[in-house]
C-alpha cells in the first residue's frame, strides 16, 4: 500500500496534479508542478534562488536538474502503470548538455519499456525550446 500511489491515482482520475507536492515533500521543496498534455506528463521546476549552483553565471545546480529528470521519469511511469507500490529508482544516468539558466525548467519522459519488474525511461529537460534540451537522463525503475 502506498499513499503516493493512491494520491497519484486520484490526481490522475481528476486530471489535477496540484496536490502532488503534498504527496512528495521533496517536489514541493524544489517547486515542482505537474501537468499532462496528450498522455505526456510535463514536470515543471519553478525558478527559485535556492536552486542555483553557480552564482557567477548564474546557473542551476546540476543536482536540481538531476532531481527534476528523476521526478519527471517517476511521474511518467506512475501515470502509465496501475501497480500499488511507488516505483524505486535503480539507476539513473544524466547527460548535461547546456547549463541551466536562472529560469523555469521543464521536463518530460518516455517509458521505453515497462516490464513486470523494471521500467526503462528516457527523460529530457529544457528551458526555452524542447528541441534544445539542457539535460537528458536514462533511468531504470524497480516496479515490484
Amino acid at each position: 500500500m502506498s499513499g503516493f500511489r493512491e494520491t497519484f491515482q486520484l490526481m490522475k482520475q481528476a486530471n489535477d496534479f496540484s496536490g502532488l507536492p503534498l504527496a512528495v515533500p521533496y517536489a514541493k521543496f524544489l517547486g515542482i508542478g505537474v501537468a499532462v498534455q496528450d498522455s505526456r506528463v510535463i514536470t515543471t521546476m519553478a525558478y527559485a534562488d535556492k536552486l542555483i549552483g553557480n552564482t557567477t553565471l548564474p546557473a542551476l545546480h546540476g543536482g536540481t536538474i538531476a532531481a527534476l529528470l528523476e521526478l519527471a521519469a517517476l511521474f511518467q511511469i506512475a501515470y502509465e502503470i496501475e501497480t500499488e507500490a511507488m516505483p524505486k529508482t535503480i539507476t539513473i544516468t544524466i547527460d548535461y548538455m547546456r547549463s541551466g539558466a536562472a529560469r523555469d525548467t521543464y521536463a518530460r519522459a518516455w517509458a521505453t519499456r515497462i516490464g513486470r519488474r523494471v521500467a526503462n525511461v528516457r527523460a529530457e529537460a529544457w528551458q526555452d525550446d524542447p528541441a534544445k534540451p539542457i539535460a537528458a537522463a536514462n533511468a531504470n525503475f524497480l516496479l515490484a
Binding site: 503516493f4 504527496a23 512528495v24 521533496y26
Partner: peptide
C-alpha cells in the same frame, strides 16, 4: 522532512541524494 520522497516512510527522495 523537506527532502523526503515518500511521506509514508519518511525516506529521502532519490533526487536529494543525487544532488
Amino acid at each position: 522532512l523537506d527532502l523526503v520522497g515518500n511521506p509514508d516512510t519518511g525516506v529521502l527522495a532519490g533526487g536529494a541524494i543525487s544532488a
